[in-house]
């Protein structure tokens, strides 16, 4: 590669993010060489990150429209709880005989719950015109609340052995969660870049009013966005359930922050209109390298929260300062936009 090519890559936010990811990886490898680079650690990372990475994908698609989804964790846990209750309460002992069949049914049920929850969010935002923050804050409470009401607040345990596969199994030697995440990321990338829907999502995010005047079917588009986010959350919920071998209303409560952090770090504009899946994937990887490395250095969960929060703020501050931007032009609050001098 010529120096120009490299400079060209680094001008793009994703190029710089790739550099950051590499630096984090090298730093962690240097700090704890024998453990960080071990096959065991690399595999365990591949099992760990997909659950929150998929939530970040859900957050990304909503943020592209200029919205935010605060209900992703609520949806994930509710979907998992429904699946778990289906397996343990309704089917019960029958599971043992047709384990795989019932696990597939439970997963479909979870996806249906995710889709339904997304539909609720979509209706609230698109049809009733609620601001996404309030709509998903309220619906998130409702979804989490249903989870509490269905379980009485305790964990649902006693899942069939087949349920473990999706979170802990391997496909052609590759961890299933990783395969799942890669597949979903690819799918979302394709949808966002190669379909009319994807183009409309970004255009709407850039200017909702112009989208209306351009006769884009906004309501249908927003519904699909929130349903997709709900279904992605449900997949994440299934992963969390499979890995924890149980379902509970407050699992993964720190993932909401993490999902927003990854989306913002990945270059998604919280005001809508810009964001690339490759950026989100790179952000996921750098977060996982960081998190895993910190783990090895014996840093507590609380300290990790501190570091994540600081990173979020740092990225936002850097992006906001005009002389040192990682993000492209146009990444600025609507109020800051100015017309040409007249």
């Amino acid at each position: 590669m010529t120096p120009e090519r490299i400079r060209g890559l680094l001008v793009q936010p994703e190029g710089r993010l790739a550099l950051i990811t590499l630096l984090v990886f090298l730093l962690m490898a240097w700090l704890t060489p024998d453990r960080f680079l071990s096959v065991q650690n690399l595999t365990s990372m591949a099992f760990q990150f997909p659950e929150f990475a998929i939530l970040a994908l859900a957050m990304t698609i909503v943020m592209l429209t200029g919205g935010i989804d605060l209900s992703v964790i609520g949806v994930a846990n509710l979907a998992a709880i429904v699946a778990a209750l289906l397996l343990t309460q309704i089917v019960g002992p029958g599971v043992a005989e047709h384990g795989t069949f019932w696990v597939v049914v439970a997963m479909l049920a979870a996806l249906a719950v995710g889709a339904l929850a997304g539909l609720v969010n979509g209706v609230l935002v698109a049809w009733l015109g609620l601001p996404p923050i309030l709509a998903t804050l309220g619906s998130g409470l409702v979804f989490t609340g249903f989870g509490v009401a269905l379980t009485g607040g305790s964990a649902v345990m006693g899942l069939p052995a087949e349920m473990a596969w999706i979170g802990n199994g391997r496909l052609w030697g590759i961890p299933v969660p990783l395969v799942l995440f890669a597949g979903l990321a690819l799918l979302l990338w394709f949808v966002l870049t190669h379909t009319a829907f994807g183009l409309k999502v970004r255009m709407f995010g850039a200017n909702p009013l112009a989208a209306r005047f351009a006769a884009i079917d906004i309501n249908a588009m927003l519904l699909r966005v929130y349903v997709s986010a709900g279904m992605l959350s449900a997949v994440a919920g299934l992963l969390i359930m499979s890995r924890a071998n149980s379902a509970k209303f407050d699992y993964g409560s720190s993932y909401l922050l993490l999902a927003i952090l990854i989306a913002v770090l990945g270059g998604v504009n919280p005001y809508g209109g810009y964001g690339r899946i490759i950026g989100v994937v790179l952000a996921v990887l750098s977060m996982q390298f960081l998190s895993s490395g910190l783990n090895m250095l014996g840093v507590s969960n609380f300290a990790r929260e501190l570091i994540w929060g600081s990173l979020l703020i740092l990225v936002m501050v850097i992006n906001a300062s005009p002389n040192f931007r990682i993000l492209p032009r146009g990444w600025q609050p609507p109020g800051a936009r100015q017309g040409p001098p007249g």
């Binding site: 922050l257 952090l261 913002v264 501190l306 994540w308 703020i313 936002m316």
Partner: peptide, 14 residues
């Protein structure tokens, strides 16, 4: 810095 308030305070919460 003029940052979006929801995301800033989510960060400072953590």
């Amino acid at each position: 810095f003029g940052l979006p308030t929801l995301i800033v305070t989510l960060g400072t919460l953590a």
